[in-house]
Design a binder for these strands. Structure first.
Lengths: 245, 245
DNA sequence: GCAAAAGTGTTCGAAATACACCCATGC
DNA sequence: GCATGGGTGTATTTCGAACACTTTTGC
């Protein structure tokens, strides 16, 4: 390893924050004010501070936009609800027209109630359903969002990540709707319920029930997230195989 | 995003190159000559050139040590044999005592015949069985190797990556020994053979056979790598579930 | 022939799928 | 009651684990 003559790099952490909005998988975007791609939508993110690593920078940037504090752990699970994990690093020399910027991208999963669009500016921070992203994003952020969606889709199969989309207490049908929204395919309710409740550590039962909706129906039981982070055996998508990581 | 006052970062690409040596999963290490951790074993790697991205830098560094040229593609598959894919990025502020160094780590998988230790220096580049790594490595490279091993173990389950450990033409038992070496557990030969040959696109049959060994035995058929990169349904490890990515 | 290694056949049980049916609520 | 949504029971089928057994070589 040489230790001189290396060119100047800027390093950023960019976050693909995801949640369910009105039952649709959505990502958080911010409208750029400054020069390159001014007016375009982009991922929240920013430069690493001198004393912080990329995990901390991602958590900080996410907190600045959503008001939520997620402490990333080894497997991405956070102390409370939510999830924050590294996705991959994008380093194409031309990805920022100003200079050499290497971006460490993250995926965050937030429970739906936390959709608070507090943070910095008001109408310049918005959730977009991923299926509605038919306009170009700044930099290579469209590609990053695509990679993040594919990561999340694939991780629902063999981890308990779906619970990160839910509030601390949730029902089995709510969890099922997470799978249906992310995978875009219906899932058999009875079999899903059995699978989830019989997989040790996925969910833990409480003795509470959510009140039935105004449309009627049996009040569903409430569950909390279990201690397991992997799902074994996995919950495989029926049809097409997933793309590799 | 600010565009000033960001501290100077150096960005490196480090490669965890893996292959089977004498039937054991092994990683390529180089002995450091220069100052921090001089004399210690470390991963091959180096700084990104001004005009190259991390993928290209990783491929270049690997080529300088092994003489092999692997062109990384979207899913990590390379044109010929072998495999090169991004692992994750390590950015702890204290990971290099000299300065702020962010390292984009890669995993490379090479076929056993390619163990040529040509490259730069002779005895300062060596393959080590991962189970024999009971000495400390330079920087945080021990952690990176651990993450790489876990990534490879997990990817054998749901991708056709195992074939990257093999020569262009290989037998089913050879492929099975890859799984056994990486997972460290025996696999039933008959069932494995059926699973592999019945999964469309994993391997394609040739009409050649490898000559039987001197110990006798039926000569195994030769196969080549198929076009599939994902394995569906996956080939799950029997016992303990894998750690999440 | 005998040992060794590759590959096939067969059985068994666990688990996913499909779907009929029962339960508990709002109106 | 009746519609709505949650949950259980059960038959079917598919798939993997285990292992007996056949094939094809070297010696």
């Amino acid at each position: 390893m040489a230790d001189h003559e290396h060119p100047p790099f800027a390093v950023t952490a960019d976050v693909v924050a995801m949640t369910l909005v009105a039952g649709k998988l959505s990502v958080l975007l911010v409208r750029r004010a400054a020069d390159p791609f001014a007016g375009s939508w982009a991922l929240p993110g920013g430069f690493l501070a001198p004393d912080e690593d990329a995990d901390a920078a991602a958590a900080r940037e996410l907190g600045e936009e959503t008001g939520l504090v997620l402490e990333p752990s080894a497997d991405g699970r956070t102390a409370g609800t939510g999830h924050l994990e590294q996705l991959r690093t994008y380093s194409d020399p031309g990805r920022d027209p100003r200079m050499r910027v290497v971006s460490v991208a993250y995926v965050a999963v937030l429970p739906e109630p936390a959709v608070a669009e507090a943070g910095s500016d008001a109408a310049d921070v918005r959730w977009f359903a991923v299926d509605d992203l038919d306009f170009p994003l700044a930099f290579d952020h469209a590609r990053i969002v695509g990679d993040a969606v594919e990561r999340i889709r694939s991780k629902l199969e063999y981890t308990t990540l779906a619970a990160a989309f839910c509030a601390p207490a949730f029902t089995i049908p709510e969890l099922r709707r997470v799978y249906e929204a992310v995978w875009g395919a219906p899932i058999d309710g009875p079999n899903f319920s059995r699978k989830v409740t019989s997989t040790k550590g996925f969910v833990v039962e409480t003795d509470e029930h959510r009140p039935a909706s105004t449309a009627g129906g049996r009040p569903p039981r409430l569950f909390r997230r279990g201690s397991a982070s992997v799902l074994f055996p996995p919950l495989l998508r029926a049809g097409s195989p997933p793309a590799p990581t």
